[in-house]
Design a protein around this nucleic acid. Structure first.
Lengths: 305, 305
DNA sequence: GGGAGCCACAACCACTGGTTGTACGTGGGC
DNA sequence: GCCCACGTACAACCAGTGGTTGTGGCTCCC
């Protein structure tokens, strides 16, 4: 495809061959192989070179795309100077959604979103330190656990919403205050003990006298959503930017929580020295997200702005 | 790359190999070759399959992109059921710009813009008839020259603007009426005799008593723009949607022509029977472009709406 | 009419990319 | 705790791909 693109641009197999460092015959055979495989003629051969056929013109745009895609793929992992790589907790989390939005409005920058398969934020900090990732959307609740050459900055706040099924007594509310959640069972399964999330829910339960049940393993989002849809007394908390896939017939309700808004503070771990040059723009973008109202509750370990 | 993508999705080389119709060893060698070439490990091997490394995760998104690109490239020219293919006069013309805008807002549809290397609209009509292209943005001024199974419909009108250099006496105008052009030399080089454009300028010159000089070959846009920039008495006409590349220091002015607006009618040649299914949406889109004011002049051969 | 320039075909050969056969490591079942 | 099942990697082998050099044919231009 590279040979085809260059030949089409130069109008000569000969020149393309010179550029590519092979013989004219090799390029001729490459094009012929492509034409045989696709079962169309891509060029009309003339005495002074080649000219694209209609099929060739149509193919060229896509071939350019493929070649550029291959280059991007290689750039994404080139040892030394690779593309910006940011770790998120999961692909449907607010972090990933925000990154995806950013990428959609700036498609020219190459940004790779990956997920470390570990829960421990200290492992993420170590990966940042080692240069395996350029930044990580994780929070280290104990500042002492942070390596010296990794720093944690405030990224953005993710407001919390209540997710309930249609039979839940709070299902009809347009919005809720934390006080109104008192007495209702809130179930957030799959929270690793002593993780940042466990800490968040602990403080939340204490500060507002809530009943947050973080026990039990997580059998997958589908199971949780199924249970919520059927139950008249189980609710859970989700971030307003989290994207869940749920069957339309579940009829689940997302209800904003206000006065105060409950903010889960998303932080960014990044190396103190020589951060990836593309990181600046991402930080600026997430910092520019619509700020939360003044009446916002945050856990004690939320980093300062 | 296909093997890599499938293996990553399935988490097993074995299964990917089964799907791809090759042995597990072949897939293993493909992945190994990829890893050797890229000089990174894409998978960590476990006893129950493979798992993506961070590099593998970053690579996967791009690999998917490449594979999809190859599929699109093949679809663009697949004999029989290929992607929608529309012929335009040139890639900077209003036609191409409009198509490009459409494609940008509907990136999911595959649309290939090509250019027949002939000037004769009857050749374009023949290409439509033969199925080499699905539609052509050309006008056949003589309806009798149209094959029976090709029809011409009104696509959209392209308003004309005057293009002049800074020293031209009309350079300061915010807008101009056709009457104000009277006496000024208007030079539109590169118009083939008896073409749709020649016809357009002939009628324009007659109806408004203008001096339109269509003689002389066209040495390329750069030459024309250079001449315009320097000259105090040469002007030319361009479509308001045409995209020209000109050096910023040329200081050329585009001046709308109004009362009446001078519309160049762009038509679409398409087969009378079994048009490409994707064509409908394109026709609807160009038909929805902002209509011109009531006071609009059109040549006599403009097809009815 | 002849030469320059470009592409295609032929013959040849190294090496890629598939095959089969086998060894190794790990996790689950008995 | 051992063994088997399962999945991956390595080895040997071989057909065919994809490169090379050499040559012929075509067209345009001088």
């Amino acid at each position: 495809m590279r040979s085809f693109v260059r030949a089409a641009e130069l109008g000569q197999l000969q020149q393309a061959a010179d550029e590519l460092g092979v013989t004219q015959q090799a390029v001729s055979k490459r094009i012929a192989a492509l034409e045989r495989e696709l079962d169309v003629r891509l060029f009309t051969r003339t005495a002074r070179g080649v000219e694209l056929t209609l099929d060739g013109q149509a193919f060229l745009a896509h071939a350019r795309d493929v070649v550029a895609g291959v280059d991007r793929a290689v750039a994404a992992i080139r040892p030394g100077s690779r593309a910006l790589r940011i770790d998120v907790l999961g692909l449907r989390t607010a972090q990933a959604v925000v990154l995806h939005d950013y990428w959609r409005s700036h498609p020219e920058i190459t940004l790779d979103v990956v997920t470390l398969r570990v829960n421990d934020p200290r492992a993420a900090a170590a990966a940042v330190q080692a240069g395996d990732i350029d930044a990580s959307f994780r929070s280290v609740t104990d500042p002492a656990a942070l390596p010296r050459d990794v720093r944690m900055i405030r990224a953005f706040d993710s407001p919390t919403e209540l997710l309930v099924g249609p039979r839940h007594p709070l299902a009809g509310a347009r919005s809720l205050t934390p006080a109104q959640l008192r007495g209702h069972r809130i179930w957030v399964p799959g929270i690793a003990p002593r993780s940042e999330w466990a800490d968040f829910y602990d403080q939340l339960a204490t500060d507002f006298d809530l009943r947050i049940d973080a026990a039990g393993p997580h059998f997958g989002d589908e199971v949780l959503l199924d249970i919520l849809a059927d139950s008249a007394d189980v609710a859970t908390l989700v971030g307003s930017r989290d994207r869940y896939l749920w069957p339309a017939n579940h009829d689940l309700r997302r209800i904003p929580i206000v006065r105060p808004t409950l903010a889960y503070p998303l932080s960014l771990l990044l190396p103190r020295a020589n951060p990836h040059p593309g990181l600046r723009a991402v930080i600026d973008h997430v910092a520019s997200l619509t700020p939360l109202p003044a009446a916002t509750w945050r856990p004690s370990w939320a980093p300062a702005t």
